[in-house]
């Protein structure tokens, strides 16, 4: 026995790291994925850089900083690389701040709706019967409600919404689609022999859900999360553009609303185009990321890469 113990064992703490590496190897081969990821890195850098301009000069504060020498919208110049808006605020710092907000809204709303959707989907699929019926009818009800309309009504009822309220609303309205997919996946997993093997070993329901079902549905959840980010960003931008955004934050949607409201829509392309392009690009980037992940998760491809 002593001899047995002295033997140094080669047990990896995180054996799944190898799998991540394998997944990355497939991802790397995907052109869409590479483009998407580069775009996202670019946006992330922009979000990080958003802290820099206000440090240089208070007039670069995206919301409150005003160039004292400018009183109307001006085009790009050395002082203001992207120009200024109607009251002399720097457009570049607004754009950078907007990136931060887009990430914040997109990722947190998507994350919340995915957590909710995955949990509900797993519970519904695993428990079955009454629980399943109840949760799925609830999901149906929410799914048929038009998110935009409900948010607009809420905004009209409660006045201005803060950015976090918007995030919460998006999360609450966007989980049913995910939960349906996760439930279907759970149903197909539930009767697989490895689940039965765990039952025979005496595993509790909680253990089966978290240890056996969750790792098998999580990749799918993450995939859906990338698509949810896209829709969350678009919803926020649309709300802001329609004037229901959080007035204390600068988002791309807000910028577009200001262009529109001040009548610069067709007069100041330097003002209109950057936020528009950014919204399109970031949603496209997340979509590309999702498509590439879809390929990574494809069991056929994974098998080929994994078998030695």
């Amino acid at each position: 026995m002593n001899l047995e113990k002295s033997h140094k064992r080669y047990l990896k703490k995180f054996p799944w790291m190898d799998r991540l590496r394998g997944g990355w190897a497939i991802y790397k081969q995907n052109l869409l994925g590479k483009i998407g990821l580069s775009l996202l890195v670019m946006f992330a850098l922009m979000a990080i850089c958003s802290f820099i301009p206000p440090l240089i000069d208070p007039m670069y504060q995206p919301m409150t900083g005003v160039d004292p020498e400018i009183t109307k919208s001006t085009g790009p110049s050395l002082r203001h690389w992207l120009g200024t808006d109607f009251m002399g605020r720097d457009l570049l710092s607004q754009l950078l701040a907007g990136t931060r907000v887009a990430f914040l809204v997109g990722v947190s709303a998507a994350f919340m709706s995915i957590v909710l959707g995955t949990a509900i989907g797993m519970v519904a699929g695993y428990m079955g019967r009454f629980v399943d019926t109840f949760l799925m009818r609830l999901a149906d009800m929410i799914m048929v409600m038009p998110t935009m309309l409900v948010v607009l009504m809420l905004a009209a009822l409660f006045g201005q919404l803060t950015i976090w309220t918007i995030v919460l609303i998006i999360a609450l309205f966007r989980w049913p689609g995910v939960s349906r997919v996760i439930r279907a996946q759970t149903l197909s997993l539930k009767h697989r022999p490895f689940i039965e093997a765990a039952r025979v070993a005496g595993a509790s329901h909680t253990r089966i859900i978290f240890r056996h079902i969750m790792p098998n549905v999580l990749p799918l959840s993450f995939l859906y999360m990338t698509f949810r980010v896209t829709s969350a960003i678009i919803i926020e931008a649309a709300l802001a553009f329609l004037g229901f955004g959080d007035p204390s934050t600068v988002s791309w949607g807000m910028m577009l609303q200001w262009v529109w409201k001040t009548g610069h829509m067709f007069k100041a392309p330097y003002w209109l185009l950057p936020p528009g392009i950014c919204i399109s690009l970031i949603t496209l980037a997340f979509y590309m990321l999702g498509r590439a992940m879809d390929e990574v998760l494809d069991p056929r491809l994974r098998k080929e890469a994994g078998t030695e």
Binding site: L11, F194, E196, A198, V200, A201, A203, R207, R211, H212
Partner: peptide, 27 residues
């Protein structure tokens, strides 16, 4: 205990061999 028919279906694809075999001990 039970040994199942299809070894391609009876092991959780997301668990390493160690995690699979040690699971009953953990339970």
């Amino acid at each position: 205990q039970m040994i199942f028919q299809d070894p391609y279906q009876s092991l959780n694809p997301q668990l390493s061999v160690f995690d699979t075999i040690s699971e009953p001990l953990v339970i």
